[in-house]
Design a protein around this nucleic acid. Structure first.
Lengths: 295, 295
DNA sequence: TACATCAATCGGTTTTATCAATCAATATCA
DNA sequence: TGATATTGATTGATAAAACCGATTGATGTA
């Protein structure tokens, strides 16, 4: 039994006329006869009475017609579901972000769900490491994160912008007026660091080790928002991506000398997998915000 | 899209492994790949991620899997419905009878629905003419009636038994003691006749006309039960098939001289149409009662 | 690094869906 | 009644496609 035969059968049943049905199906009457016969053979029962010149449904034919219609209806529903998916009337979109992307993500997050109300969005904050792991396991569709290398074996990456590592202090802090800070200067500061696993922390560790600097890290925290809240109070300083400070009006970003502390932001997705249309469009939405950042 | 492809797809999705799925389907991995690819092309979206050595469903694949399963389920339901029909777990059986068959029909009507509880039965009383018309229009599956000719262009007929035309009178009637009545004797009797259209009446008309006899028909009625009720009161006489009198204990059947008034009872069905299994079985049930009638 | 395994691909074979033409039965019309 | 047209079935040929076996290329694994 094939869908083709069911289609033929339904049309023939509706018209009670093989020749007309065949014409409507753009096949010859011969073909229609054969396919119907084949279906009857498989079911083991005639679907039509051939009485004289005209055909009419048998009891089995009437019963089977209902089922054939139902089957074809289910097929249409299946196709429609795929169409919906492609036209974004439905679907899931799972995005992983690191904290520094908050201000970058929010505008898109405000407009996108309005444009495509059928799409459920899941946003997950996490460290670059944990997000990439989930991306590889296909638990996320898209990740926004900083990264060291621009290439990766099984991840596709698109560079968004670059962001310097800065020292963040409160306006009230005595360092707030500085235009630049040399790396060595960190040694004497009271620092709160993000925990290991945070990309800012990991890349920082690398640089500090290379320059043989061991600043006094007084506090480690795995929540950037909490870190910045502490720094805002005045006493503490921290090292973060410049981007992470957007929106914190009481904080001052002081660039660190040395180019090596410039980091690259990427949109990352799995290599080889089919990229959801929703993901594509969301990326476009994100990229719209890019020009505004060039400052 | 064909059911074949849906079957392949579901198996491949369940095993997440083309080679194994192909083996389970008794086709080569090559064929499976091609058919899946074809399905994907038609839907316009990949159903599997081919990442490295293993395959896994895409979002569209997961969605479509549900629908594919549903479609195949509907197909099974359709096939099952046909099976049920063939094994008589369901179906309709529409029988037309003339009044004279009542006593013949009742036993089968008592046992058959018990044996096959899934079958809905419709019994329609009517004249031979009207029943045959409905039979031709496929509004009835089977007709029990008397008939003149044993052959008909588009009706299939199986002779059941023969039944004489008799004069029916009450036991109280003065004619009740007669063993035979010559045709001519009818002229002086007070007769109630079935209306035209009733086979007894029509065949009677023929014979009477041939013998140039015009009995005084005082009443015509189109309901045999009412005729017999009247006759039972004593005054009237009527002409009917012997069979019609079974069960009327207060009536006496007096045969008419002359062989031409013997009539043949038939099971009649449409020529060329598929005969329902239910109809076949019901016929067998009817024929069981035949031997008891030979008296 | 060699090996095994996977899905994709290629070329060729078999199956089958399709068509055009014809046939037999039947309804319609002169 | 006989001629004609129309129906679905049948037949033989052709084009499509389902299928297979072998190979390739990529990817894990010993």
């Amino acid at each position: 039994m094939e869908l083709r035969q069911l289609n033929y059968f339904v049309k023939a049943a509706e018209l009670s006329h093989f020749t007309e049905a065949a014409a409507a199906l753009y096949i010859t009457q011969s073909t229609l006869s054969q396919q119907i016969r084949q279906l009857e053979n498989e079911l083991g029962i005639p679907l039509f009475d051939r009485i004289g010149k005209h055909v009419s449904l048998t009891e089995a034919g009437s019963v089977f017609l209902l089922h054939a219609r139902q089957i074809l209806l289910e097929v249409e529903k299946g196709k429609q579901a795929i169409q919906d998916l492609q036209h974004l009337l439905s679907g899931d979109l799972r995005i992983g972000v690191t904290y520094a992307f908050t201000s970058f993500l929010l505008p898109a997050l405000a407009t996108f769900p309005v444009q495509y109300p059928g799409i459920r969005m899941y946003v997950e904050y996490g460290t670059t490491q944990s997000l990439e792991a989930k991306l590889r396991a296909s638990e996320l569709d898209l990740v926004l994160a900083f990264h060291q290398e621009a290439f990766n074996k099984d991840l596709e990456m698109l560079e968004l912008f670059r962001s310097r590592m800065v020292v963040a202090v409160s306006r009230k802090n005595k360092l707030a007026s500085l235009k630049k800070i040399p790396l060595q200067r960190l040694t004497g500061m009271d620092l709160i660091f993000p925990s290991r696993g945070f990309s800012a922390r990991d890349s920082l560790d690398e640089v500090l080790q290379k320059n043989n600097i061991q600043p006094a890290v007084r506090i480690e925290m795995n929540d950037v928002h909490s870190i910045l809240s502490l720094v805002e109070k005045g006493h503490w300083a921290t090292l973060l991506n410049e981007r992470a400070l957007l929106g914190w009006k009481n904080l001052v970003a002081i660039p660190i000398e040395g180019r090596e502390l410039q980091r690259r932001a990427y949109i990352i997705w799995q290599k080889g997998t089919y990229r959801k249309k929703a993901a594509d469009l969301f990326m476009q939405e994100l990229l719209k915000a890019l020009p505004d950042m060039e400052k």
